[in-house]
Amino acid sequence: MNDRREVGEWGIKSSPLTRVVWYIILFLLSVIAVVPVIWMLSTSFKPSQEIFAAGIRFIPRRATFSHFIRLWESFPIPRILYNTFIVATATTLAQTTISVLAGYGFARFRFPLREPLFYLCAATMFIPIQVIMVSNYLLMSAWDILNTFFAVVAPQMANAFGIFLMRQHLRTFPEELIEAARIDGANELRVLIQVVLPSLKSVIAAMAILFFVNGWNQYVWPSLVLTEPEQMTLPIWLRQFMHAEGGSEWGMLMAASSLGVIPALILYVLAHRQIMSTFASTGLKG
């Protein structure tokens, strides 16, 4: 069962008409996927009077940075971007480290209750965050650490998806290489860092990028613990800004939205090959 052809190379019988129809459908879906984002970017560069002009126009007649400049002058944008970046980075570092360690432990060691403990970790994937958020909020409030980055990051330091992914990949690593390193006197942490991890570089990179994008994008939990504008991440601040200005400043709203979307999109474009192949290699069984 090793004949892993590309899915397009099975040569399933099809008429030219079928193929043309599929091209059209896929093209239309791609348009739906991309156009709202282009519309957002386009609006953020349109001068105010052009935003409400009749007809649909994607390329502004006279592109302007005025919305970005006004945004920058009226609000602590660098601070908000900094908050978002720090939260995303801290989340990524914690989730990646803990996933690698736990994945290695579950994949490579025998210990009492290993299977039940693994199920307890994996089961957290099925608990909606809204079920546990009120209690976690009360805890942060009791500890008096609302509006701190620690309060945002702490509850999500362990990530079931990451542990699952790492366990899958670490299970198939050749045992002889690990044994050889142990015989050479390397301790467990060195075996992991110097022997095992280098071969998983691209999987870990893809996972870390997904973690970063999720950390950058996250909304539900930070919306509870970040109530001071000074500490807010971009998605949280954006909602507050939208409600405060009452839905007339679309240029500035779209400029702020673009600031949040562009970094994630750039990361995705740079790393899409690794992300795709990680998805493809994981599979869902086992």
Binding site: L26, S30, N217, L234, P235, L238, A264
Partner: peptide, 12 residues
């Protein structure tokens, strides 16, 4: 292109 909306924050 079809995967790209996945990386956009739901809040945004």
């Amino acid at each position: 292109t079809l995967f790209s909306p996945t990386v956009v924050s739901l809040g945004i």
